[in-house]
Design a protein around this nucleic acid. Sequence first.
DNA 1: CTGCATCCTAGGGGATACTG
DNA 2: CAGTATCCCCTAGGATGCAG
Lengths: 122, 122
Amino acid sequence: MLHLPDRCRAVGGVLSRIGDKWSVLVVMQLSGGPKRFSALKRSIGSVSQRMLTLTLRGLERDGLVLRTVTPTVPPRVDYELTELGHSLRQPVEALGGWAMENYRRIEAAQKAFDEVREEGGG
Amino acid sequence: MLHLPDRCRAVGGVLSRIGDKWSVLVVMQLSGGPKRFSALKRSIGSVSQRMLTLTLRGLERDGLVLRTVTPTVPPRVDYELTELGHSLRQPVEALGGWAMENYRRIEAAQKAFDEVREEGGG
DNA sequence: CTGCATCCTAGGGGATACTG
DNA sequence: CAGTATCCCCTAGGATGCAG
């Protein structure tokens, strides 16, 4: 096993790209196959059009998502994961699994922390 | 395998907490055992004192880091991962592994994307 | 339908100075 | 040494309107 500092920087780089508000959601939504812009927007729901566009551009630029334009009227644009995009699913889902298993513990810790703070502060 | 939407939200929540600029770095730095504030700051290097403090508070609140104050003069504060904090290492390192394996591919994709953009735009 | 440009606000995060 | 408070900048990101 290589020592950690290298991985740290690598993780830092990855997180600064996919650690934004929407990238991971989009990748997950594209797990099942291609989706067009509006379908993607609907399936995520709370994302603004602007941010979905920007997020998809970013993912496309990173080579994680492939954008296919069908120049009809009205235009149709499909997005799908590249092989690289699919390979990201595994570690992301590992993180998702961890989150699922532990978010209750985290919430409990936050609650406890905040209560102690209140007592100490008030 | 459970379907994805649940995991999506969980990942979203986790990423919004540890997806900031420093949390993961701090967790990785604490992998080897307890460290005091200044050692942590030195080992990360580029972090500001303010952000290190805020990051550690956040991690402590989430129950990922334990803070131990030794009220000497000058004061000494040690930070260490909790069990929960240690459990986060595994998925994070998985992500780190992915990043290590693929960041060159990502950089290449970005370069290609940008060059096409230049041609198209100029 | 898809995407860009614009405006605008909240918050992240750096530098610095001060406290205990 | 560790932490807080202040100032300030910059970017993420929402709302909206226009264009292909």
